[in-house]
């Protein structure tokens, strides 16, 4: 069923000076699927997110979202059709309380078109949404200044900003990175809930064990190229992946 395809990335490339950050990457994603993107540092994971969501201009290639060519669109227009993203380096408004951080996306045209956007008081909606992602209302966490929140809450705040747009798809840039083990453990059910709610997810990750609790397939990048694609088993047994991560079996590590 081809209408099931929500995102189609076709031969996308980007160079920064002489460095090929993303080299001719293609993949497709069906509605409701969870795709992991993994790879060593500097392999182009964040760049591919920036290319899909319009934050960085592509050198070549096309991106189709729900059959529509969004290759040349501005970031806010892409978010407006329901393709949201988080940032790896969290981007809160530090001088505002956490719940007021959620009001700009609730004020966006997309949110205002929806049923929830017509509810009236956006502060109340914002606090409800923050509670959904784990801000304890009773402990008054939503009222704390975003600049003073610990990392775990900032990651949730990032997610919440996406959820306020009522997205059909979220691209998450390393939601687990930098978190303590207990914070990661509490984050996994949240991601699973998003999946159950029917939101298509792309997760760029280094934490493979947690990633594969949620994602059933992944692509592996190295030096901007896609070196493998498939289920977790297929990926771990791929010789190219082993080489990318461990330097190959003939490297000194194994000798």
């Amino acid at each position: 069923m081809s209408d099931d395809i929500i995102l189609k990335v076709e031969n996308v490339s980007k160079s920064f000076g002489g460095v090929k950050a993303v080299d001719n990457i293609s993949f497709t994603l069906r509605r409701g699927e969870v795709l992991g993107i993994i790879g060593p540092n500097g392999s182009g994971k964040t760049t591919i997110i920036n290319l899909i969501t319009g934050f960085v201009e592509k050198d070549s290639g096309k991106v189709y979202y729900k059959g529509e060519d969004i290759s040349e669109w501005q970031p806010h227009k892409i978010a407006d059709v329901g393709l949201a993203r988080t940032f790896q380096a969290m981007r809160p408004y530090p001088t505002l309380p956490a719940y007021k951080n959620i009001i700009p996306p609730l004020y966006s045209p997309r949110a205002r078109r929806s049923a929830r956007g017509k509810l009236g008081d956006r502060s109340a909606v914002a606090i409800d949404l923050l509670e959904e992602v784990g801000f304890e209302r009773d402990a008054r966490v939503p009222y704390k200044l975003a600049g003073a929140l610990p990392l775990g809450y900032l990651k949730r705040l990032e997610l919440c900003r996406c959820l306020a747009l009522m997205p059909e798809m979220i691209i998450c840039d390393e939601v687990f990175s930098g978190l303590s083990m207990s914070e990661i453990v509490s984050m996994v059910p949240l991601m699973e809930k998003l999946q159950r709610d029917g939101i298509t997810l792309i997760m760029v990750e280094h934490r493979l064990r947690e990633l594969f609790k949620i994602a059933k397939k992944a692509i592996v990048l190295n030096f901007g190229e896609k070196i493998a694609e498939g289920s977790p088993d297929e990926i771990f047994n791929d010789p190219k992946v082993k080489e990318a991560y461990f330097g190959g079996e003939d490297s000194y590590v194994f000798k």
Partner: peptide, 17 residues
């Protein structure tokens, strides 16, 4: 709040549609 968001963080405003 959107104006203050523009001051604090332009990328987040874009990502907020």
């Amino acid at each position: 709040l959107v104006f203050r968001g523009v001051k604090d963080n332009e990328l987040a405003i874009k990502a907020s549609a």
